[in-house]
Structures are given as C-alpha cells and as structure tokens.
C-alpha cells in the first residue's frame, strides 16, 4: 500500500526504471543479433556444415534435442551431480572451516595439508579417480566435490577470521557466553563470505563437471558434447555447449538467490 502510494507520487521513477530495463534488453538483443548475423555470414561463406553449421541448423538441432527431452535429460544429470557434490563438499568444508577459523592450533595442524593439496586441480585427479571409481557417477561426483571443496573451505575460514572484532566485543560486554557468541555472532557474521564462497564453489565445480563427464561418465552434458563430436554432428555439439552455458548461468543465479535468502543483509 505505502509503496504503491509512494510510486503514485513519483510516477516518473517507475517508468524511468522500466524504460532503462527495456533499453538494456534491447541493447543485449542487438549485440546478439549482430553476433548471429556474422556467424551466419561466415557459415554461409565457409559452407561446411560439419566445421561451422549455420545458426539456423544449431537452432533446429536444439529444438529437436529438446523435443525428445535428450537435452534436458543430460542437463538434469549434470545438475544433479553438481548438487550432490556441493552438498558433500559443504558438509565437510563448512564445519572444517569453522574449526580452522576459530582455533589457531587446529588451523596449524590442518592448513599445511590443505595448502599442499589445493594446487592440484580437480582435473588432475581424473586419471587416478578413473582407476579407483571407473566410468560412472562416482567419478564426476568425486572430481566436482574436490573442486568445490577448496573455495568453500577458504571462504569459510576467511569469513570466520574477518568477523568484525567489535561485534564479538559487543556480545562479550553483554555477558553472552562463548558458545552463544560462536552460534549467534561468528556464524551469522561469516555467512555473507560463506555465500560468496559457495558461489565460487558452484563455478569451479561446474567447470570440473564438463571435464569429468567428457572423459569418464556415460551421461551428462560433457558426455553428450563429446558423443556428438565423434558422430561429427556439430549442430548438436553446439546446442549442448549452449546448454552448458545456460545452466552455468542458472546455477550462478541460484547461488546468488541462496545468498539473498540466507544473508539478506549482505546485499548492500
């Protein structure tokens, strides 16, 4: 009610914001249109549908793949693997990060091991993990969990360490006991940084999933891309690559949404 009334008083604010939104959509469409036209021209000149199919052929392939749900099946498989991996990674990394952030001694014991493992990218684990897990669900889940683990851990540790000292002091001067300070001050204060870390974890594990599926999984977007490449069906390859991009974007949006829900005070 109140807000509507405020808008009624300043109608220009609302229309101006809408106009700006509409204009940015237009600019976006214009840029992408230029891109597609250039692509179509080059494809036409090359006239080699295997090397560079026309935008229309890719669109057609995407529609066909969507119609028999193949596109969504592989997308769902990859997405589900990422959810499972992030859940496992968070379940280990968040408590570990809390303990490392709170206890200097624990940090000194664990941190060197973490720092020894961290430079070894998740992808470098693929050959060894292939040997241990074989081709299947376990391999991509392991690689993604590993890839997502480090950003989440480091973000949690940094979040706990960077908690504003005076917030803790404020709670102490109210006589709040130590344990309550951890649960009611340290954890919420570290939450925004944890959410940023989770977003980073989503990004790194999404990159890792494609590599892992490309090499060692019988399903998923990475597998599909490679499958159609071997069949030299380039339009399908490009449709799946686009799906990887779209889903990567959606995952990032979801992580942001999670941050807005759990740490609404962090957004400015």
């Amino acid at each position: 009610m109140g807000e509507a009334a405020a808008y009624a008083d300043y109608p220009s604010v609302r229309t101006r914001a809408m106009r700006r939104g509409a204009r940015s959509v237009l600019v976006y469409l214009r840029t992408m249109a230029v891109f597609v036209v250039v692509w179509a021209l080059v494809a036409h000149l090359k006239s080699n549908p295997v090397l560079l199919p026309s935008p229309l052929a890719v669109m057609q392939a995407a529609v066909d793949l969507a119609r028999d749900l193949e596109l969504f099946y592989h997308a769902w498989v990859s997405f589900a693997r990422m959810l499972v991996s992030l859940a496992i990674a968070s379940a280990i990394a968040i408590p570990l990060g809390l303990a490392m952030g709170l206890s200097r001694t624990f940090d000194r014991i664990v941190d060197p091991t973490i720092e020894l493992l961290r430079p070894i990218s998740g992808i470098a684990w693929i050959p060894l993990a292939l040997f241990i897990f074989g081709v299947g669900n376990a391999l991509p889940v392991f690689i993604m969990t590993y890839a997502g683990f480090f950003p989440i851990l480091l973000g949690t540790v940094a979040g706990v360490r960077d908690v504003d000292r005076r917030l803790i002091d404020a709670a102490r001067t109210m006589g709040v006991p130590q344990r309550t300070i951890v649960t009611r001050v340290v954890v919420p204060a570290a939450l925004p940084s944890l959410m940023v870390a989770l977003r980073l974890g989503v990004a790194t594990s999404w990159t890792a999933v494609v590599a892992a599926e490309l090499i060692g999984a019988p399903s998923g977007l990475g597998y599909a891309v490679e499958w159609y490449r071997e069949l030299l069906m380039t339009p399908q390859v490009m449709a799946f690559i686009a799906m990887i991009g779209v889903l990567g974007y959606v995952c990032d949006r979801l992580a942001r949404l999670l941050s807005d829900v759990f740490a609404p005070w962090a957004s400015r």
Binding site: S24, V27, Y28, R30, T31, M32, F35, V50, L51, W206, T207, V210, A211, L214, L221, G222, V225, E226, Y228, R229, L232, T234, V237, M238, I241, A242, I244, G245, V246, L247, G248, Y249, D252
Partner: peptide, 25 residues
C-alpha cells in the same frame, strides 16, 4: 554496453566444453 552481453553470454561456458569444437576446427 555493446560488448558486455557477448562476454556475459560466453562466460558461463566452461573452457573444456568448447574442446570438441577446438578439436573439430
């Protein structure tokens, strides 16, 4: 304004995903 949409559209595509295209080309 004109380039950002392109960058933002390709950014979520993991580099490894375009490997099949790179091999093809």
């Amino acid at each position: 304004r004109n380039v950002d949409p392109l960058v933002e559209s390709f950014r979520p595509i993991a580099a490894i995903a375009i490997l099949p295209l790179a091999i093809l080309w």
